[in-house]
């Protein structure tokens, strides 16, 4: 094994995980600005899912290259930091613009989506840990 092989691989995959989604997001954002909201809903929705899927795919090598501690750090930071940050923004939007403002409702929808995704992944994770109980 050549020296610095692992760190080079980690650098490459980290760069891909950062630049890949960015390269997808910039033209997608430009295209989305051309669309009238609500028009061609399914086209925009499915195309967005495709772009998001591709962004996730670009992050897979990075996730697989990281060691246990790095993954643990990201999971802890994402769970506690990500949730706290989201809740902070929600509280600010509710206080500043009201609970029924478009922005606050959008934030609530986002957090509900995150919660649903969390529950699905957690359920799948739990099912995969099953073994023979005695």
């Amino acid at each position: 094994m050549s020296q610095a092989n692992y760190s080079r691989r980690l650098r490459k995959t980290t760069l891909l995980a950062f630049l890949g989604p960015l390269a997808l997001a910039i033209p997608s954002g430009f295209l989305l600005r051309q669309v009238v909201p609500g028009e061609q809903f399914w086209l925009v929705f499915l195309a967005s899912l495709l772009v998001i899927g591709a962004a996730f795919w670009a992050c897979v090598p990075w996730w697989r290259t990281m060691d246990d501690m790095q993954k643990h750090g990201h999971m802890v930071s994402w769970y506690w930091g990500g949730m706290a940050g989201g809740m902070l923004v929600l509280a600010w939007l509710v206080a500043a613009l009201g609970l029924n403002s478009d922005q606050a409702l959008g934030a609530v929808a986002l957090i509900m989506g995150q919660t649903l995704g969390f529950l699905i992944f957690w359920a799948v994770w739990m099912l995969r840990q099953r073994g023979a109980g005695e």
Binding site: M1, M66, Q70
Partner: peptide, 11 residues
């Protein structure tokens, strides 16, 4: 050692 074990130096 980190390279040999394929983990980060921080680990």
């Amino acid at each position: 050692l980190a390279e040999a074990i394929e983990v980060s130096r921080q680990t």
